[in-house]
């Protein structure tokens, strides 16, 4: 019995997500040590809030990356911006349009995802190029509809997105619920097995009766819908949509997937790691901030940490 427990304990560091959470904890305490432990609650709640944005887009990107080499959704930032812009424009600050506004955002995601998939399927364009060229179109649409205006979100929505329930930020709750749902979807449902099968060997998956085209369509649409939801929430959280609001999430969405321990070669996904990676990305930046480093050093350290984590995590539990 004791042996079993010990081996279970020893197995934890071999979990792909272990390193992301361990490094997040390290960054958290390194930040707090500077202020003698004060402000720990605030830092945690800020980390949980901002990590929620990265985690939601990261989950979408994870579905796509799980499909295997060459599958990356580069249109996430543009989809976020377009969904945020159009939904806020539609709501026009009116409280009773909050839910229809969410519908508009999700419809944008649905359309963008379907368009991405059609480009990949019908034109046989490599997904990287397809989502890249499509993102140019979405970006143009957002510029055209935005016209430099900054429309405020309805007050109730702004309050909700910056508020907390029982001490936990609302956005964090949404992010965790989505993570749970996608974990169940990936680990416990037939669809999840299909996605992994597609990523491990598309041809074998097709020959064994997996509806590969359905799987591919569903993952690209899921990614775009999650991006549009993030755009909607982020625009509400920050008091309006901005044309560059999605820009940083391209790199972050890929980074959290990989830091979290998903295999970039596809076929192996890992939902808890997404949250670990998202927390880490925020905590590292805030740690470097509180140590008084400038933007340049902060960027260099962020990059070095990403590479170090990937180098440390590789070969450890990746094959399982």
């Amino acid at each position: 019995m004791a042996d079993l427990r010990l081996s279970a304990l020893l197995a934890i560091p071999r979990r792909p997500w272990f390193w992301a959470f361990a490094a997040s904890g390290l960054a958290y305490f390194a930040t707090l040590s500077l202020s003698d432990g004060r402000g720990g609650g605030e830092l945690l709640s800020a980390a949980l809030t901002f990590a929620a944005f990265s985690a939601i887009v990261g989950i979408g990107q994870m579905f796509v990356i799980t499909l295997g080499p060459g599958n990356v959704d580069l249109s996430i930032p543009a989809t976020m911006t377009l969904a945020g812009t159009l939904s806020l424009k539609f709501m026009g600050g009116l409280g009773h349009l909050i839910l229809p506004g969410l519908g508009v955002a999700l419809a944008v995601g649905l359309a963008a995802g379907a368009f991405n998939y059609l480009l990949i399927r019908l034109l046989r364009i490599p997904p990287i190029i397809a989502t890249l060229s499509a993102s140019f179109l979405y970006q143009s649409l957002a510029i055209w509809s935005n016209r430099g205006l900054r429309i405020k979100p309805p007050e109730a929505l702004a309050d909700f997105s910056t508020g907390a329930t029982a001490g936990v930020p609302n956005l964090t709750i949404i992010g965790i619920l989505l993570a749970l749902a996608s974990w169940i979807l990936l680990e416990r449902s037939l669809f999840g097995r299909w996605v992994s099968a597609y990523g491990q060997n598309t041809r074998a998956a097709r020959l064994s009766g997996v509806p590969v085209e359905f799987v591919r369509a569903a993952t690209y649409i899921a990614s775009a819908v999650l991006a549009s939801l993030t755009g909607y929430l982020l625009a509400s959280f920050s008091g309006g949509a901005a044309l560059n609001m999605g820009a940083e999430y391209l790199l972050i969405s890929i980074a959290v997937v990989v830091i979290g321990g998903c295999s970039i070669a596809g076929g192996n996904s890992n939902v808890p790691g997404i949250w670990g990676g998202a927390l880490l990305m925020f905590l590292v930046v805030s740690m470097l901030n509180s140590y008084g480093f400038g933007a340049g050093v902060r960027l260099i350290m962020t990059g070095a940490i990403i590479i170090a984590i990937v180098a440390a995590a590789s070969g450890k539990g990746r094959s399982s």
């Binding site: 890929i254 980074a255 990989v258 340049g296 070095a304 990403i306 590479i307 180098a311 590789s314």
Partner: peptide, 30 residues
């Protein structure tokens, strides 16, 4: 060499490097 020896995903390592080069550029010309 690092990517090959440790069998790392190039997309991630170069992503990390993009932060590093960007940071160095900001240090040089704020």
């Amino acid at each position: 060499a690092l990517i090959h020896i440790r069998q790392l995903p190039a997309i991630v390592v170069t992503l990390g490097m993009s932060f590093v080069w960007g940071g160095l550029a900001v240090l040089l010309l704020p």
